[in-house]
Each structure stands twice: as structure tokens, then as C-alpha cells.
Simulated scan of single mutants.
Amino acid sequence: MRIGELSERTGTSRRLLRYYEEQGLIVADRAPNGYRDYDEFYVDRVLQIRGLLDAGLPTRLIKQILPCLNKPRVIHFPDATPEMLATLERELDSMNRRVECLTRNRDAIAEYLEEVRAIRDGRRPAAA
């Protein structure tokens, strides 16, 4: 698929896709006319990259962990430095805190909606 289709299917700008390519996160074949041609695989890959970026990981770390996202999973890091591992541990802790916060917020909203629906449907009286 061409870059425009990948952009449309992932909600990612063409400019950002070219940046991902410059960073070695995705790879495009080139047609004889010079146009980029992306494999279907890259739709999910771009979404994974965006998710990792949204979680706060820098592209240099994303590039290192992308092989772990493939199936079958291959985890082999001959160049995993103590600094990289410490950064990943911090990022994992940060993600876990965000997940916990999102879970609390989701539960609070669900409770609120249930209460509003119960009052609206006459299953509970409205608070005075």
C-alpha cells in the first residue's frame, strides 16, 4: 500500500510515517517510480508504535523492543544496557500507574452512569 493509504488507515500523518521510516521503525519498499510501498503488516506496526509513543517511550527504545512485538515473539537483546533496562522499568512503572488511574476513572464513570440510569428508569429515587 502507498503512504497515503497507510496514513489513512492508521490515522498517522504522512510526515510522521516518513519520520518513523527515518528512525528505522518501519521500512518501505520502493516502486520503480520511487513511491513508497508498505506491507499490510505495517498497519498494526504503526498503531503499536503510536501506542508506545503515547505511553512515553522514546523512539530509540521503541526500535529496540519492536522485535518483541512480532509473532512468534523473539526476545534477544545483545546490546541491552543497564541504562536501557532501568529506563524500561521506569516506563513500565509509569504505565502501570496510568492503567491504575484509568481503571479508577473508568469505574467511577461506570458507577455514575449506573446511578443516573437507575434514577432515570425509576429504580432509585433521586437524591434530595
Rank of each mutant, 00 (worst) to 15 (best):
L52S: 09
Y38L: 08
K63F: 14
L17I: 14
V74T: 08
R45S: 11
Y20G: 02
L47G: 05
L16S: 13
L52C: 12
R14V: 09
I65V: 11
T103Y: 15
L88P: 08
R106A: 03
R117N: 09
V116W: 04
E40M: 07
Q23R: 15
Y35E: 07
D29W: 02
R18F: 09
Q64P: 01
I49L: 10
P82E: 08
T103L: 14
R120Y: 08
L16I: 14
N33I: 09
R73N: 01
I3G: 02
R50G: 03
R73A: 03
V99Q: 15
A80F: 14
A31F: 07
M1R: 04
C101G: 11
M1W: 07
E22H: 04
R2N: 09
D54K: 14
P78Q: 04
S13P: 00
D44F: 04
M95V: 11
R15C: 00
L69R: 00
R45F: 02
D121S: 03
L69S: 11
R45N: 06
R36G: 01
T12Q: 08
R30V: 02
R36K: 04
F77H: 15
R90C: 07
L85W: 08
V46D: 01
Y19D: 01
Q23V: 14
R73S: 03
E83V: 13
T12P: 04
